[in-house]
Design a protein around this nucleic acid. Structure first.
Lengths: 133, 133
DNA sequence: GGGCCACATTAGAACAGTTCCAACCTTCGA
DNA sequence: TCGAAGGTTGGAACTGTTCTAATGTGGCCC
């Protein structure tokens, strides 16, 4: 059982076969799957799972804060199960591959805050990955 | 005539009535309109302009590097005409309002580069704007 | 000025990703 | 065992964007 499934179970989330395969589909480091990729993987384990359930489940996981929703330039949302370690992303502008990285977090000067109540910073490094170079 | 229109003219871009109203629709600081908002504004100045032209034109401006394409959490692309000063963004998580800010740019340690040829860093600060607080 | 051609524009169809819906199925407590 | 709450489903609907094929137009050449 994966860490994520473990955590969900502890939170008393009703664990059905569908939800389990969906949560397990996202296991691993540097995993940032789009919904259809989660669907693919989930179906490999449980063929009768439906796309609607994948979307329902992913949205619930995001609301619960167990998964991060990332917006990628191609318009498809990605889902990142790594909510434990604070991290940022390195994206290949050519193939779209996305890796987790740690980096210093820039601050925002008071004079630049425009009265906002700041609560998060997201850093995306863009470049060309070795395979595409 | 706006700066952007000026620059485009200098680049020898064929300036039609439609292209002008589209380029002018994006004038100003802290402007990050979605395509349909550009369409609205353009139509106010030239009612017979079509949505297809708005998309064609925006995509061309992005390719020419005269406008930046931003991906917003709601899935709609935003277009930022401020390509002159390097800047980052401050986004309200509640209403989606987006402001330009300047901030230090974080670097990425060699050990975290995974062999990528880095060429850009994008920083997004998230918070709640005064109107939404 | 008139004709021509490359290119701009257009409405609407097509498309992709996501959400909604209404029917059905499961789980679990009483 | 029953009923209610909630999970799952396929397909329809919706939204933002791109494509297509027909039509319009700016500006160069004569």
């Amino acid at each position: 059982m994966t860490e994520l499934v473990e955590r969900l179970r502890e939170r008393g989330w009703r664990m059905t076969a569908q939800r389990r395969v969906i949560a397990e589909a996202m296991a691993g480091d540097h995993v940032h799957l789009a919904a259809d990729e989660v669907y693919e993987r989930a179906r490999a384990a449980l063929p009768e799972v439906s796309l609607a359930t994948v979307y329902n489940t992913l949205n619930e996981l995001v609301e619960m804060g167990e998964v991060l929703e990332l917006t990628h330039a191609d318009g498809r949302k990605r889902y990142d199960p790594n909510t434990v370690e604070r991290h940022h992303h390195l994206v290949c502008t050519s193939c779209g591959r996305m890796l987790d990285v740690t980096a210093d977090e820039p601050g925002l000067a008071e004079s630049e805050r425009h009265g906002f109540d700041l609560h998060d910073v997201e850093v995306t490094f863009r470049g060309r990955c070795p395979d595409c170079a």
